[in-house]
């Protein structure tokens, strides 16, 4: 590609999400203040911040699930959302097979089998009860559920909470392969700095307000990390990308 073509290609990348002066308050208490950023098509944005920083609230506001002030403009309605595992009801449900859970999306059996294979689950699990999967299997299953109808955007909140280190790496590798293959736009909430170094093109650090925003290799300095998480945090960027 010539330099000129490259410039045109850059200019033609669609903005999938534009957020201007987003403010969210609960009971008069400001949870998010004056947040502005945008996400391009095919971009991986990692949202980083300590507990109580407003990360989950941000995703819920972006999806219109809670009231907010400011502007949130999506270029698509083709959005999938995976709430954090602890907000999924897994016990106390009626008998529900995994196949029936996928059928809620009205997709063909062929697509279900295909996505099952892609997320590395045995098709025999389709007959298994919804509450009978292990944590790792459940996480793969819900990733498959989110992607089975081919969304343009995936919002994923704490995808690896409660999963061991090996399982975490598998989940992120899986997301990475779908991102490359389908030109997915991904907004990912995590605490895991390794994920930022290895998978994010852009990072948004927040603690009720924007603290840093941009290429993680440029903006995530030790000083910035200290500002986000407080003194005492030590993290060394991996260099084997």
């Amino acid at each position: 590609m010539s330099r000129c073509e490259g410039v045109w290609a850059l200019r033609m990348v669609k903005t999938m999400l534009k957020v201007d002066n987003l403010n969210v308050a609960f009971n008069g208490f400001d949870v998010i203040t004056d947040l502005s950023f945008e996400v391009k098509e095919g971009e991986v944005l990692v949202i980083l911040g300590p507990n109580g920083a407003g990360k989950t609230t941000l995703l819920r506001a972006l999806l219109g699930l809670i009231p907010y002030r400011g502007n949130v403009v999506w270029a698509t309605e083709d959005i999938s959302y995976l709430p954090p595992q602890e907000l999924w009801e897994r016990r106390g449900l009626p008998p529900l097979s995994i196949e029936e859970f996928f059928r809620f999306k009205a997709v063909s059996m062929e697509r279900i089998l295909n996505i099952f294979q892609r997320v590395g689950l045995d098709p025999s699990l389709l007959k298994r009860g919804y509450g009978a999967l292990s944590t790792g299997q459940f996480q793969r299953m819900i990733i498959g559920w989110a992607l089975v109808d081919d969304p343009s955007v995936l919002l994923f909140d704490e995808p690896t909470s409660g999963i061991d280190i090996g399982g975490q790496e598998t989940i992120y590798s899986l997301l990475h392969s779908f991102w490359k293959e389908r030109n997915l736009t991904i907004l990912l909430v995590t605490h895991d700095l390794n994920v930022v170094w290895e998978h994010a093109e852009t990072v948004l650090c927040m603690n009720r307000e924007k603290l840093c925003y941009g290429n993680p290799h440029k903006v995530l300095t030790p000083e910035e990390l200290e500002k986000i998480y407080g003194a005492g945090i030590k993290h060394y960027e991996h260099t084997h990308r």
Binding site: L63, I79, P83, P94
Partner: peptide
Amino acid sequence: YSKMILVSISEDLARVE
């Protein structure tokens, strides 16, 4: 029926759907 079960699983998920 199935929509109400999805609401039981996660109301946020159901609303996004």
